[in-house]
């Protein structure tokens, strides 16, 4: 057993990658909601909002892979790849880790169906894309409940910031769409 796979390095890497994934997923979520709320300004045309939503989602997926990879390689607690992908399989922190596995699965489904959207058709893609509203809160709860840092002031602060960002985007969208009674897509 090398010090790499057993030492604290991977544990730090896992936590850092998890935090980055949370921030990226939050940004993607907020942009997705803003975009559906038809947010645009002179300096932020819609294709920019949508392109960022897309690219940040894919970047979040890359950090998710890192987050899972470092967790699995780390031998300090034995969490295997199946535990990371099949919700509530792992005996270690079964509930909180299970939420992480569920959010990961949803992220993968969201990304795959979006990248193949042209073949899937709009209706099916749109239906599946609603899973974003499940994915993000589940990921946030996983972050709050699982980590070494849970309960620390800065972790709670970061999470509150994430919630505020998504709530802000949702409020913008509601304010923008409700009074106009625009037809839904």
């Amino acid at each position: 057993m090398s010090s790499f796979s057993h030492g604290p390095f991977l544990w730090y890497a896992t936590r850092a990658a998890g935090l980055v994934t949370l921030v990226l997923l939050t940004a993607s979520m907020a942009l997705g909601i803003l975009n559906a709320g038809r947010f645009r300004t002179r300096r932020w045309p819609r294709f920019l909002v949508q392109g960022l939503h897309r690219n940040l989602s894919l970047l979040a997926l890359a950090f998710l892979a890192l987050h899972i990879g470092t967790t699995v390689i780390d031998t300090y607690v034995s969490i295997g790849l199946p535990d990371a992908l099949i919700p509530f399989l792992s005996p270690y922190k079964r509930f909180w880790l299970g939420l992480g596995a569920l959010a990961s699965d949803l992220m993968i489904v969201l990304a795959v169906t979006s990248v193949t959207r042209l073949h899937l058709g709009h209706r099916a893609w749109r239906l599946i894309h609603w899973a974003g509203y499940l994915c993000w809160p589940v990921a946030v709860m996983h972050g709050l409940g699982t980590g070494t840092d849970h309960g620390r002031a800065w972790m709670v602060g970061l999470t509150l910031g994430c919630v505020a960002a998504v709530a802000g985007a949702a409020a913008y969208r509601a304010a923008r769409l409700l009074p106009a009674r625009r037809l839904a897509r």
Binding site: N35, Q50, G51, R117, L118, G121, H122, R185
Partner: peptide, 8 residues
């Protein structure tokens, strides 16, 4: 065409 939100 790929960017159109409703693929219209």
């Amino acid at each position: 065409a790929a960017a159109c939100p409703t693929l219209a």
